[in-house]
Simulated scan of single mutants.
Amino acid sequence: MNAHILVVEDEVKLAQFIELELKYEGYQVSVAHDGLTGIETARQSTPDLIILDWMLPGVSGLEICRRLRTTGVKIPIILLTAKDEISDRVAGLDAGADDYVVKPFSVEELLARVRAHLRRTTEEDSHLMQFSDLRLNRSSREVHRDSRAIELTAKEFDLLEYLISHPRQVLSRDQILERVWGYDFMGDSNIIEVYIRYLRLKLEANGEKRLIQTVRGVGYVLRE
């Protein structure tokens, strides 16, 4: 699905121009002409990227950045601004903007920055894996069950990553040994049971439902 971009710009002709250019590039586009509508649209439609004018009626672009960031919204934000002082740029970035384009700007530059931020977001998303309320980040090696952070050892993480990479697929003990411990593993094959037990203890520490199921005589599967 094509990326959805929200344009918040009070100059109607400029907003229409940006909208047309973005649609020509294949993006889905929503437009808001004031700050309050911009915030509401951002929260309701959860776009993939926001192009946000600094000077807006009602609520400024800077204030929109702050409000979205303080409520945990991590959508990339590109500020459009007529302000080109270093202090203004710093203020924009400090408020939570990811980038800024100074007016007047070339549409080619704006489109290039849009592509760069969407590409970066896609790369970050490829590191995130989720099953039910369990989330695993391959890049940061962080694991969460709902909002609870779970500390795992390197091998526990590798085992869970293998399971979450093959949801609802029964994995044999041999497959798990080969993938997680390697071809040359010469230790006790009961190591799998030991680590599955460790994982279950940590994943179910607050009484959460079991996700790692035993398939007797075969192996294990991640399913509800």
Rank of each mutant, 00 (worst) to 15 (best):
Leu20Cys: 09
Glu40His: 15
Gln28His: 09
Gly26Ser: 10
Glu40Arg: 15
Leu36Lys: 15
Leu22His: 05
Glu19Cys: 14
Gly35Asn: 06
Ala15Glu: 07
Leu6Lys: 10
Lys13Ala: 13
His33Tyr: 09
Ala32Tyr: 00
Gly38Thr: 04
Gly26Phe: 09
Lys23Ala: 11
Tyr24Cys: 04
Gln16Leu: 15
Val7Tyr: 07
His33Leu: 08
Val7Ser: 00
Lys13Pro: 08
Val7Leu: 03
Ala32Lys: 00
Glu11Pro: 05
Glu19His: 10
Gln28Gly: 06
Val7Cys: 00
Thr37Asp: 00
His33Met: 07
Leu14Ala: 13
Val7Gln: 00
Val29Ser: 03
Ser30Val: 07
Leu22Val: 08
Ile18Leu: 06
His33Lys: 06
Val8Ala: 10
Tyr24Asp: 05
Tyr27Met: 03
Glu11Gly: 07
Ala15Gly: 15
Gly38Cys: 03
Gly26Gln: 07
Asp34Thr: 03
Leu22Trp: 02
His33Ser: 07
Glu9Met: 03
Val8Tyr: 08
Asp34Ile: 05
Lys23Thr: 10
Ala15Thr: 14
Leu20Lys: 11
Gln28Thr: 05
Ser30Tyr: 04
Lys23Tyr: 02
Ala32Gln: 02
Tyr24Trp: 08
Leu20Tyr: 11
Val29Asn: 02
Ala32Cys: 05
Val31Trp: 01
Phe17Cys: 01
Val29Cys: 05
Leu14Ser: 14
Ile39Gln: 09
Glu19Ser: 13
Ile18Ser: 00
Gly35Arg: 02
Gly35Met: 02
Glu11Asp: 14
Gly38Met: 04
Gln28Glu: 02
His33Pro: 01
Ser30Asp: 12
Val31His: 04
Asp34Glu: 15
Ile18Trp: 07
Val31Ile: 13
Leu36Arg: 15
Glu25Asp: 13
Lys13Trp: 12
Glu9Trp: 01
Asp10Ser: 14
Asp10Gly: 11
His33Val: 12
Gly26Val: 09
Tyr27Pro: 01
Gly35Glu: 05
Ala15Pro: 11
